[in-house]
Design a protein around this nucleic acid. Structure first.
Lengths: 111, 111
DNA sequence: TCCATAGTTCAGAAATTCGGAACTGTTGAT
DNA sequence: ATCAACAGTTCCGAATTTCTGAACTATGGA
């Protein structure tokens, strides 16, 4: 498996963030990750309620989120731990992530 | 020419906004429009400095911006007047557009 | 009426996305 | 050590989307 690429904070591009979060499935995944206390694994996030995302698609969603700078992934044994980079991101793009999640009505802690 | 479609405020989808603004060319157009005092025509916005957008592409960019709910277009004589819908949009998605333009470093009035 | 101009639509080439099937790397059991 | 099970990745072909030159439409002026 190729090593996972994570952009440095200063290399994160707004267009990549917006693109990644222009897909409701990815937003749902990201929002779950932002809300979950446990480090979310891929398979734990595959179930969207109305549909189960095929795993190759899921893997691609995580790649898009990771390479845009939204999440950090690292292998831990047989599975992948994913966490948001929301603190650093907010430093780079103040208010952006919160405004987006609010727009989607999926701010962690909201009904 | 087909009548131009503009979504009602309540029908505007965050994913459409994010998608529309995930393209730096469209952001440049939108930012010019947000900054310009004159109602921007298509051709007035075609020149990006480093590249002149072909007019069929430009027309498509405007369509994406319009159908996402970001702008209002109306024909005025031979040309098209475009204006942002930023006031209503901010009502629907508070802080979103500003955060995005800030992220791109293109808030009207910034260097 | 005829021409110029602003922008739209059409169509085909190029690029992207989606997802099933095959594959890789890790852990635990025999 | 070998094997099986599992989490996730990679590959690749089909379907969709994007891009843009060329043709077209609509409007206003000479």
């Amino acid at each position: 498996m190729r090593p996972l690429f994570h952009p440095a904070l200063e290399d994160i591009k707004p267009e990549a963030i917006l693109y990644a979060l222009s897909d409701p499935e990815r937003v749902a995944i990201y929002a779950k990750l932002a809300g979950a206390s446990s480090g979310g694994t891929c398979s734990a996030l595959a179930d969207l309620g109305d549909r189960v995302i095929p795993k190759s698609s899921l893997s691609n969603h995580f790649k898009v989120l990771r390479e845009s700078g939204l999440i950090m992934s690292e292998r831990q044994g047989v599975e992948m731990r994913n966490q948001t980079r929301c603190t650093e991101l907010d430093e780079r793009f103040p208010g952006l992530i919160r405004a987006i999640l609010t727009a989607y009505g999926q701010l962690p802690g909201q009904p």
